[in-house]
């Protein structure tokens, strides 16, 4: 089920970060948001990024999204076989669904397609298909306020997929949901990931969530903000809630707790 061809045929990874550094400057001082991070992500991989507040995980997503330039090191996305268009190949999901209140769900999903000027009719059909896929079939004409928080976040995921991007950046997408909805959304995300074959970077501060979802977990620490360890996760191919009682699941989470000085 998990297409983990960790490297493309010619040996290139889809995302390659080497000693990436990011500094925010105000007039009087500098703040090092990321001291150093190096990771390689294969196409189609779901990588979790976990760490405390201020470890630079959200900054990393902004750098990858091309919103903020990095100040050192090397960022490469895409490979010769898998070229990457920075305008078209990024989908973003945030902690808040950020749906436009005045648009119906389908119109919300279509926002990126409109911005990119994609053909209307095909996009509409794709929006309908995506809403089916995220389990919102029948809610195309609803307004956001008519949906629960979990459902709104599903719509936000459909919106991130509408322009068929290669990379999905998720910044604590389930952080505002209640615990049970969050569990359900984790399973949903895995299903959507398998179906859509996207590369996903998933920022969270839930350690269990990070291990449960990721084929790799990037553990980041704050002060200085940098990568502590890039852990490859070997857990059963089909991840369901049984995985959480798996012996290895416990040892992975313990290892991350230790890295983050939580014992």
């Amino acid at each position: 089920m998990r297409a983990l061809n960790s490297l493309s045929p010619n040996g290139e990874s889809f995302i390659s970060l080497k000693n990436v550094r990011k500094v925010y400057r105000t007039r009087t001082e500098e703040f090092e948001a990321i001291q150093s991070i190096s990771i390689e992500v294969a196409a189609g991989e779901l990588v979790s990024i976990v760490g405390p507040s201020g470890c630079g995980k959200s900054t990393l997503l902004k750098v990858l999204a091309g919103l903020h330039p990095h100040d050192g090191g090397e960022v490469r996305i895409g490979s010769t076989n898998d070229p990457f268009d920075p305008a078209r190949d990024i989908g973003m999901v945030f902690q808040q669904p950020l749906l436009l209140k005045w648009r119906r769900i389908r119109e919300n999903v279509l926002l990126p397609a409109e911005i990119l000027g994609l053909p209307r009719k095909a996009s509409r059909e794709r929006a309908n298909d995506l809403l089916q896929m995220v389990g919102l079939g029948g809610f195309e004409e609803s307004y956001p306020y008519e949906l629960s928080g979990g459902m709104q976040q599903r719509a936000a995921i459909a919106r991130a997929l509408i322009h068929d991007p290669k990379l999905i950046l998720m910044d604590e997408p389930f952080g505002a949901l209640d615990a049970l909805t969050r569990e359900r959304m984790n399973l949903e995300l895995l299903r959507i990931w398998v179906e859509s074959k996207k590369t996903i970077l998933f920022v969270t501060h839930g350690i269990q969530e990070a291990v449960f979802l990721g084929s790799h977990v990037a553990v980041m620490t704050a002060g200085p903000a940098r990568l502590a360890e890039y852990i490859e996760i070997h857990l059963p191919e089909t991840r369901n809630l049984d995985v959480k009682t798996h012996e290895d699941f416990g040892s992975y989470t313990r290892r991350i707790y230790a890295l983050l000085d939580l014992r």
């Binding site: 919103l67 305008a87 990024i90 945030f94 926002l111 990126p112 409109e114 911005i115 322009h163």
Partner: peptide
């Protein structure tokens, strides 16, 4: 973050204005 979303798609100011700011 909504602005981030539009900017990540290289949306221009006019799009931000007509699709997000004005209706908002």
């Amino acid at each position: 973050e909504l602005l981030d979303l539009v900017r990540s798609l290289k949306g221009n100011r006019w799009q931000i204005f007509t699709k997000i700011q004005l209706p908002g």
